[in-house]
């Protein structure tokens, strides 16, 4: 009896040990990543948030990223924010998308900086506190740190650009693309003389419809130079859309477009 037991116990114990060791390794990295953990209350759903990035990026300074919410919300609940995090950048924050009202849709694209091969995490939170998480690994073959030397580190905001479709339909998603010229200097990069170049970032871009804030993008060091945001609106009323960028020095730049529906 004893012999049989030991004969089976040993491999069993080995299997159990292997299982226990494998547990933390199988867990997604958001579960071990403190900046994301700090934002999580309870257990986020792993289905319902789609995060898209290339598997391999040959230019870490502008990696295309798309995120879309496909989950379902309880009656009366609405999405509050989607935050994007980098697990191996000097700072975890990449960009935040904030939905001030339900006319802005959770279907967004931007360009991000990735310092090296790493996982990117998206975390969506609803007003009732429900959460969704998505994660993707990106292999980066040229670091986002290798920025061009001819960019002017202390340049201000210039050339705000807005693109709207030619025909806008009531109740249909309207795709809006925004772009502004700005170096988004991280404060982590050295000039030729060895001194750190001072940080110079755009703080955010707010979209208002008839003076009511509808959508906001908050930018960080992980947002690419010349911040680009592609967003979607759904509205059944004509309105004046104002896009306002504010930098760290509280300078502002504004562009307006009329939303006139067919």
């Amino acid at each position: 009896m004893i012999q049989i037991h030991t004969r089976f116990l040993l491999p069993l114990a080995a299997l159990l040990l292997a299982f226990l060791i494998s547990l933390p390794l199988q867990a997604a990295s958001w579960q071990q990543f403190a900046p994301v953990q700090a934002q999580i209350k309870g257990t986020p759903a792993s289905e319902g948030l789609q995060l898209e990035l290339p598997l391999v990026s040959e230019d870490g300074s502008a990696v295309p990223l798309s995120v879309r919410f496909t989950g379902s919300l309880a009656e009366g609940d609405q999405l509050e924010s989607i935050r994007i995090f980098a697990t191996a950048n000097p700072n975890a924050e990449i960009i935040d998308f904030i939905f001030h009202d339900a006319r802005s849709l959770a279907d967004l694209s931007t360009r991000v900086r990735l310092n090296e091969t790493q996982n990117v995490i998206a975390l969506a939170t609803s007003r009732n506190g429900r959460q969704w998480v998505a994660e993707r690994e990106v292999r980066v073959t040229v670091s986002g740190c290798l920025m061009r030397s001819d960019e002017q580190a202390d340049a201000g905001m210039q050339n705000p650009r807005i693109a709207l479709p030619r025909r806008l339909q009531a109740g249909q998603p309207i795709e809006i693309r925004t772009l502004i010229s700005h170096p988004m200097e991280t404060g982590l990069r050295k000039a030729a003389d060895g001194k750190l170049l001072p940080q110079n970032l755009i703080h955010n871009m707010v979209l208002e419809l008839d003076q009511q804030p509808v959508f906001e993008a908050r930018f960080y060091t992980g947002t690419s130079a010349n911040p680009y945001v592609r967003l979607h609106l759904k509205t059944d009323q004509n309105a004046m859309a104002r896009f306002r960028w504010t930098d760290q020095q509280k300078q502002q730049l504004e562009e307006a477009r009329e939303i006139s529906l067919r």
Partner: peptide, 9 residues
């Protein structure tokens, strides 16, 4: 999470 764990993952 450490880089080491990341590699295993």
């Amino acid at each position: 999470m450490t880089t080491e764990q990341n590699k295993h993952l």
